[in-house]
Design a protein around this nucleic acid. Sequence first.
DNA 1: CCAGACGTTGTT
DNA 2: GTCTGG
DNA 3: CCAGACGTTGTT
DNA 4: GTCTGG
Length: 234
Amino acid sequence: MCGRYSLATPAQNDLRARFALGESLEIRRRFNVAPGDDVVAVTTSKEGVARGELLRWGLVPHWAKDARTGFKMINARAETVDEKPAYRGALATRRCLIVADGFYEWQRREGAPKLPWHVTRADGAPFAFAGLWAIWHGPAEQVLRTCTIITTQANARLADVHDRMPVILRDQGEEEAWLDHATPVPVALELLRPLPDELTGRRAVGPAVNDARHDEPDCLDDAPAGGEPAPSLF
DNA sequence: CCAGACGTTGTT
DNA sequence: GTCTGG
DNA sequence: CCAGACGTTGTT
DNA sequence: GTCTGG
């Protein structure tokens, strides 16, 4: 799945050019983005123009009674996203990009603490998750713009760490197709594949990332020696 | 018809 | 809002 | 995803 | 165990 990620790339101007985020959007270096945070995203206006904005991670559908619903909807399964009532409408008209440069997966181990891995593109370049977004009108004048990250089966490169991974669009062409309102849903669904093994990089990291409130560079530090999976005793 | 869910992951 | 289950 | 709470009454 | 908050 995808419950934590990074956008640590220091070159903000490169990000603005690469993803058409606009000049005014504030882009902070993030080492530990968690559900409930405002995240850097690209949506499409009614006129069909891509624009950068901040969306709260955790989709709150327009019919939700309260905003806490979002914590249950941080991911949408690619295999069923066109069937689920909570996502089907968004799939047709509110697809978005969520800008990142890595994500974290926790590997469960017998007799040892869960080991976090930082997964990136093999070349370390920033990328976009395939996402969906929604607008929610709360009590008073409260308006929330929220999003979810689509997940799929993990590729072979990550199979020993976890069985799910977020959908990372492969290139700018796929990103434009995902954002384009003219792309029919069946065509958009074809983009929801695992990143190819040869484009995937991974590195075990230390426990700093475990705490969602800790958003510091040491989240990316190498796992301490002995943190790698020990040979099974049996 | 009304009531209640609407989500994913991992673990038992 | 829309679908499913009762 | 992980971490941390999981409760009520009454008083400030 | 399950829910909430980050």
